[in-house]
């Protein structure tokens, strides 16, 4: 990389960091100004709605397989189903993800063997 690309990379890194850090600093000052003991009340409502919808959108984006096809969609469906079933039973974070990935992998392998 020449010097201009190094500078560009540093500018992108600093800019991305500021996008993450500055809003936090702003909100902390906002919360202090309000001086409310239950800080959730000082949060703008739209922001508390936006957070779960952003996570839901991340989930939607991550659902799309890299190579869409019947086998990958079926594996996604069964993997997701098993993930949620294990979550309902364990209410944990690690096991549902492990079992979901395992089922997804088994379905992918089985469908490759069949077809």
């Amino acid at each position: 990389m020449d010097n201009s690309v190094w500078l560009l990379m540093l500018a992108c890194a600093v800019g991305t960091f500021l996008l993450r850090a500055v809003p936090l600093i702003w909100m902390r000052r906002h919360l202090v100004r309000r001086s409310i003991s239950n800080t959730n009340e000082a949060m703008p409502v739209w922001l508390t709605v936006l957070a779960p919808t952003m996570i839901a959108a991340m989930f939607g984006v991550s659902l799309a397989p890299a190579h869409p096809g019947i086998s990958s969609w079926l594996a996604t469906l069964l993997g997701g189903l098993c993930t949620i079933l294990v979550w309902r039973r364990t209410r944990s974070l690690g096991w549902p993800v492990c079992i979901g990935v395992l089922v997804y992998g088994v379905v992918v392998v089985l469908l490759k063997m069949i077809g």
Binding site: F59, R88, G105
Partner: peptide, 12 residues
């Protein structure tokens, strides 16, 4: 697939 599985558990 670990990522959609993780998001699913966080959203449920």
């Amino acid at each position: 697939f670990a990522l959609p599985a993780l998001f699913l558990v966080l959203l449920a």
